[in-house]
Write a protein that binds this DNA or RNA. Structure first.
Lengths: 214, 214
DNA sequence: GCAATAATAAAACGAACGTTCAATTAATTC
DNA sequence: GAATTAATTGAACGTTCGTTTTATTATTGC
């Protein structure tokens, strides 16, 4: 046999990407062989090489596009710097909605960095840094404007990103909570984390004040 | 050649464990071959099988012992349920100090779950659940006592654990911050997150504030 | 110092790996 | 409907994998 009836390059490539994301997210990049991936697609291993020159290039493509889409989603959702609290809220919500909708791709992007060669690793890390810089900027601007209390924007940005990315570890759709509810709860926690004005808790009537325990 | 001069089972096993944690943390379980591990130890691959019957059993041993040590460290650090805020503080600090000191082992425990067979996976997850249950208990008790404001203890526990475990992603010793300082900052953020009474922020008095722009 | 045992090397096993290549067939173009 | 192009197969390449077996040497106990 050779070319199969109904075969179509575009469809095959899409099927390869989807199967690759699912398999790699579940079993890990190293544990997924080209043969296994091909079998999932319903094709022979050699056919994969018509679409991706190497296994690593396939991984890299998945990760790069995931990061680019994340950044694009944020650019579309960004309400601009006028209101820091609204901007932070938009960031948290966009992040959670995006990641929950792409659980597997997120897992791949977060777990398989070590399987990339230095050049490709750098490229992905640059995209990641671009995204994280957005959050740092929000925190700095908001702190300067008095909307937040953030004593270390870089550290706080990492803490928030890890907290909100962690959703995908435990969240499963069609369970207890909807994506909307989860986003709400993480939004609330984030606002408390940066001590956002307007999100004051009832406790501060007596206020022992900033406990920073240096 | 066969047995080498100065060879000692205990030392070899310790060397295997250490090398395995380092290599697996850096390159991933699947990417580390028994030959490569053996080379790192300075031994032939066959020698590894005197200490661990299979590669997976080696991984499982590393993960199980890491979790058991984490739980034991918490039991030793636990100040008891009298003061919820103090207990949560102890939990956060113990977690961060423990994980920073064992960055590689933590990476292995967090990233290689998927390489375990079902039986061993269940065993590790049970230990993990035991640990997480501790934090949920602290949050519930504290919320019931009015020390915290937590509307969803299970979700909040996951958020906190992911936030404080994330330290190992970016933290490097002998850099900007000491472990102590990092633990302090995460402690402060955690207390805000649960809206701990006595941790009120000064913001609501005048609203402008310390921007430290790290 | 001799027997017993512990620790390792060396070689080999079949299986699986990523990748390449030539052959073959389906779809498209004119 | 012939020529061209697109899509895929099937077989094969050399390499590496986890693991086993057997032989050999160092150490230990008496």
């Amino acid at each position: 046999m050779a070319r199969t009836i109904g075969s179509d390059g575009e469809k095959t490539e899409a099927a390869i990407r989807e199967a690759a994301v699912n398999l790699i997210a579940r079993h890990g990049y190293e544990a997924v062989s080209m043969r296994r991936l091909a079998a999932e697609v319903g094709v022979q291993a050699a056919a994969l090489y018509r679409y991706f020159p190497t296994k690593e290039e396939l991984l890299f493509t998945l990760m790069r596009e995931h990061m680019e889409e994340l950044i694009a989603a944020w650019r579309a959702a960004d309400p601009g710097p006028a209101d820091s609290a609204a901007r932070l809220a938009a960031f948290v919500r966009n992040h959670i909605v995006f990641h929950v909708a792409r659980r597997h791709a997120t897992h791949v992007s977060n777990m398989e960095l070590r399987s990339l060669s230095p050049v490709r690793l750098t490229a992905v890390l640059r995209l990641r840094a671009t995204y994280e810089k957005e959050l740092r900027g929000i925190l700095r601007t908001g702190a300067a404007a008095g909307a937040f209390t953030v004593d270390d924007p870089a550290l706080t940005a990492m803490a928030i990103i890890q907290m909100i990315t962690g959703v995908i570890v435990w969240f499963r759709p069609d369970e207890r909570l909807s994506v909307r509810e989860v986003a709400d709860k993480y939004h609330t926690m984030t606002m408390r984390l940066v001590a956002a004005a307007g999100h004051a808790e009832e406790k501060n009537v007596h206020a022992h004040d900033a406990v920073r325990a240096g």
